[in-house]
Amino acid sequence: MHTGLDLAQDAVALTAQLVDVPSVSREEKALADLVEAALRDVPWLRVERDGDAVVARTELGRAERVVLAGHLDTVPIADNLPSRMDAGGLLWGCGTSDMKAGVAVQLRLAATLEAPNRDVTYVFYDAEEIAAEFNGLKRLVDRHPDWLAADFAVLMEPTACRVEGGCQGTLRVEVRTTGKRAHSARSWLGENAIHKAAPILSRLAAHEPRRVEIDGLVYPEGLNAVLISGGHATNVIPDFCTVTVNYRFSPDQTQEEALQRVRDLFEGYEVVLTDSAPGALPGLSHPAAAAFVEAIGTEPTAKAAWTDVARFSALGIPAVNYGPGDPALAHTREEHVAAAAVLEAEEKLRGWLAG
């Protein structure tokens, strides 16, 4: 049994309280219940819920609406709960960086900004850390796109308090070879499918990834073999081999264009798409995005990963990533967040929304 969330405490203490409620993906209900209950006590918010996703909105009739979104789930706990604060001002624990510090900032703003200069939609969702079919934001897009309607969105993924625009797209393919099975003592009677995969790896090793500039941000691409499998036993010439290739592509390409680029590279081989997600353009030329960048006061950079900003982009909503955690610490046993960064993120966002 967890006590109710105290939204009057500072964002660092609130982060610790959130961290101490375990919420591994698909097990977010306890935390979602606490978030919903706390927000329903805020008189200027309209609160709605779908599964373990909670959406709270101001309805002030402002000329512009923005979304602040963050996921409630974490990766599996790695002997790093409960949270602990050290003498150097670092809060340690599962989810501190990715991304309960960002969620704490959202909750603090929701509870204390009665009359922001823009209408705000606060989105807290489930199952971001696992397969896309379970993603709570995807479910909201499918079921309640009207809940997400806005002019601009901020996904509070960890960025070390820097604005990261858009995101890469990602796809995975299997590049397959076939051969003929034989006893390895009489290998000349077979065709080795694993040996046939050597040119696939050579093409990958020789590939020069693109670096694409969009709105002044440079997106570095990556095309890499991430898995290889084949064969039956140590005394059998293999008759199949599969190289799994992951392409992280710049958002100047559609998924179809990115797939064709991969097919062209592996011409002559069977190429099977296994999963794909679009990138998101940074949209920094949009007035709402430009105002956000100015308020934060740091030079924006490209997001060298895929994030849920792509879901907002698909709805025609320009979006950026911004949060207090360090992305390099996400999913690690040593995950932590600096108290100063949590307070800085709250201060910057409060200045943007109340200035």
Rank of each mutant, 00 (worst) to 15 (best):
177 T>F: 07
176 R>A: 13
151 D>P: 04
145 P>A: 15
204 L>Y: 06
187 S>N: 06
149 A>E: 13
230 G>Y: 00
228 I>G: 09
184 S>C: 13
179 G>Y: 00
154 V>Y: 00
222 G>W: 02
214 I>F: 06
180 K>D: 09
154 V>I: 15
211 R>D: 12
147 W>H: 11
191 E>D: 13
164 E>T: 09
193 A>S: 14
171 L>H: 03
232 H>S: 15
146 D>C: 09
163 V>K: 01
200 I>L: 07
199 P>C: 12
210 R>L: 12
145 P>I: 06
182 A>L: 06
142 D>W: 02
146 D>G: 10
154 V>T: 02
147 W>D: 14
226 V>G: 15
215 D>S: 11
161 C>Y: 02
182 A>S: 13
203 R>E: 15
184 S>T: 12
194 I>Y: 05
190 G>P: 01
186 R>D: 12
174 E>T: 08
226 V>K: 10
191 E>H: 03
143 R>M: 11
171 L>C: 09
196 K>P: 02
194 I>P: 01
208 E>F: 03
177 T>A: 12
205 A>D: 15
212 V>H: 03
232 H>T: 13
164 E>H: 10
147 W>G: 09
184 S>G: 11
195 H>Q: 13
181 R>V: 07
148 L>W: 01
178 T>R: 14
221 E>M: 07
138 K>Q: 09
186 R>S: 07
155 L>N: 04
150 A>N: 04
216 G>A: 10
147 W>S: 08
190 G>E: 07
213 E>Q: 15
152 F>R: 02
138 K>L: 15
178 T>L: 08
153 A>E: 05
207 H>E: 15
140 L>P: 01
192 N>L: 09
151 D>C: 08
183 H>D: 13
190 G>L: 04
211 R>H: 14
138 K>H: 07
153 A>M: 09
227 L>G: 08
